[in-house]
């Protein structure tokens, strides 16, 4: 940082600190600072913290680095403000637009203050405010990504129900696209249910599954093996012809896995396995 720039930075920093009260006053009603609880004193403290961080950034020459210490010190605050907005459904760019509204009042104040306002000083101030917006945007993006991930996880748990078909027989019908995370969850809930319900047979029904890749097929296989180690038998039912073909092409060995065409066949097998005899009433054969 050159002598000249250091001088300009100090000048802008002292402007910000001297006019802190006015800047706070111009910011306090912006939606960006609305924390939702109507606590005006808190809003003023938050505004003050942002002003001081900006002053620090221009003073230390960090006005264009969103990861530098002055901006980093605002992370907690931004996470709270941006997190609140993303939870209400605002996108990261909407949050960034609101952060961008902080610039106007400050620049106006800077220009109206009279005296000699050099081009370099103005650029510094505008840079710092732009970097602030980038810092907010980064945090908003990461909080919304996190939110999506959380929702996905919740959805995953909802989408793998374990159904008790009979005393000692349970089923997990899988529907839709199976990815690695979902088959992992299905595997864990199936195995836990085996213990909880003392089920000797568990049926993994994949009739509703559109596609199976190597990872998913491996998970299915691991589920069968883990269930066996626990002392239960796991049957896979509803393997559609295309999926059976894919599995063979992928070199997945289903030799040791009990498979049945449909859930009904699997249930009949399971009942036999636990000692029931499944017979059709007289006259019903062939119906």
């Amino acid at each position: 940082m050159g002598e000249q720039q250091r001088h300009s930075g100090a000048e802008v920093a002292s402007f910000l600190l001297e006019r802190e009260a006015e800047i706070i006053d111009s910011w306090r009603r912006l939606p960006f600072f609305d924390s939702g609880d109507g606590d005006q004193a808190q809003v003023e403290r938050d505004c003050g913290a942002v002003v001081r961080a900006l002053a620090e950034a221009v003073r230390t020459g960090d006005e264009d680095d969103p990861a530098a210490a002055p901006f980093n010190s605002l992370r907690g605050l931004f996470m709270e403000l941006a997190g609140r907005r993303t939870r209400f459904g605002d996108s990261a760019s909407e949050v960034a637009v609101e952060a961008g509204r902080l610039k106007g009042p400050v620049v106006r104040l800077w220009k109206s203050a009279g005296g000699h306002r050099g081009v370099e000083q103005t650029a510094l101030l505008v840079d710092a405010l732009g970097t602030l917006r980038v810092a907010v945007m980064e945090i908003a993006v990461s909080t919304s990504a996190e939110l999506i991930q959380q929702q996905q996880e919740q959805l995953l748990e909802l989408s793998t129900p374990v159904i008790s078909l009979w005393r000692g027989i349970l089923a997990v019908p899988l529907i839709g696209t199976l990815d690695s995370a979902r088959s992992q969850i299905a595997m864990e809930s199936l195995l836990q249910a085996i213990v909880d319900q003392r089920a000797e047979v568990a049926i993994l029904d994949i009739t509703g599954v559109s596609m199976v890749d190597t990872m998913v097929a491996q998970h299915l296989l691991k589920t069968v093996m883990a269930a066996r180690m626990m002392g239960a038998e796991c049957i896979i039912s509803g393997i559609r012809p295309q999926i059976a073909q894919t599995m063979v092409q992928l070199g997945i060995d289903l030799e040791e896995v009990t498979t049945r065409a449909g859930l009904a066949d699997a249930l009949a097998f399971a009942l036999t396995k636990i000692g029931y005899q499944v017979t059709a009433p007289t006259g019903a054969i062939g119906r």
């Binding site: 595997m187 864990e188 195995l191 883990a226 066996r228 180690m229 626990m230 002392g231």
Partner: peptide, 22 residues
């Protein structure tokens, strides 16, 4: 336990021929 079974499978231990019960 389920977590033990999953871990053993990942580890590559199949325990072939071992009789198990719930």
């Amino acid at each position: 336990r389920p977590a033990v079974a999953i871990t053993l499978v990942e580890l590559g231990l199949s325990l072939h021929g071992l009789r198990t019960a719930l």
